[in-house]
Design a protein around this nucleic acid. Sequence first.
DNA 1: TCGTTATTTGACCATTCAGTCAAAACGAGT
DNA 2: ACTCGTTTTGACTGAATGGTCAAATAACGA
Lengths: 199, 199
Amino acid sequence: MSKPPTRIQQRNRASILAAGLDVFSQHGFRGATLDQIAEAAGMSKPNLLYYFSSKEDVHTTLLSGLLDMWLAPLRAVSDCDDPILELLKYAQAKLDLSRDYPRESRLFANEILQGAPRLSPSMGALKSLVDEKAALIQSWVDAGKIAQTDPHHLIFSIWALTQHYADFDVQVRAVLGDADPYVGAVTHIDRTVRRLLRP
Amino acid sequence: MSKPPTRIQQRNRASILAAGLDVFSQHGFRGATLDQIAEAAGMSKPNLLYYFSSKEDVHTTLLSGLLDMWLAPLRAVSDCDDPILELLKYAQAKLDLSRDYPRESRLFANEILQGAPRLSPSMGALKSLVDEKAALIQSWVDAGKIAQTDPHHLIFSIWALTQHYADFDVQVRAVLGDADPYVGAVTHIDRTVRRLLRP
DNA sequence: TCGTTATTTGACCATTCAGTCAAAACGAGT
DNA sequence: ACTCGTTTTGACTGAATGGTCAAATAACGA
């Protein structure tokens, strides 16, 4: 039935998704227009709709494709001798995502902020993953390897602390002036996580 | 020139702003429609436009009116014998705002996320306030009253940790299930701030 | 009650925007 | 050069939406 996509199809779908990421992350779903996306992708609107069936199609394709990347660092958290280092690594990986992929972060933030209408299918999987890692963290607490803490809220903290720098970028930069936010953020988050977990 | 507003004017402007807060915080500026807001306010669209000159007028009126409330807890931070308690109080006050005024939090988050196009005038004042309080915190660090920390990033941390519960409410609830997020959040944030600041 | 002012609204306009369609342009194999 | 499937687009449609306006209705003081 479905033929393998040609080179042109791959290239065009990719540039549409890149353009969509740009526009959706900047204006949100309702604020973005197909003309904007088509223009940013270097093609006409009907041509865009030849590759994606609708505006929503572009959006959901982006979201589902990005969720994996976004959760990869959490998936990588696993049992080991030095849990503090493991969670430190997680926090830094998450901060790296904020620095290197701020548009992706804002795309998610926009979606969650509006009640995640197009993301609810994935919420179940998200809960499973978080619950699993929370159990692992709890086992570290029980073994006395890290300080007493609520694992779920610990994960929320890491999300909040790191994503803040991508999602509230303009505010952070307005306050800091010319300084690069991430220089200070790296050491601050390092210290925060260490202090929070040291038994 | 400008007459004092009648009782009807006060009531109607107030209900328009209440409706606008509801709709804007849920759908963002572009996603919200005047018909929605008018309906939520219990009046016709032309009538709404009798009290506010435009959609943008409603939005900016909301934003500027809310900024004061939002920054009040930070303004209240002042020098004292026990800086840790002072900052603890600040963090809890901010968390209370997230719990009691989540729509206001999301309204701001929406605005910042899109680059704060309608909020840039206030950014200068924001920086002044933060710089002032950061200097105060730095003096506490220098006096050895709290642990070494970057004051600006400390403030960002408190913002991030507390606002996360309002802005990402659906995600938090999807992960936690039925549990009330704020029950765990209060003690978690208390512990986090204490551990972060203890010399 | 009457006249004046404040309030409310139905009808309307112009623009924007998602999505359609038929036809044109292109490309690869023969 | 011809054919057939793929890609591209100009022109269009219908619905949504911000905003206007003149006329209707309510409030209120004299």
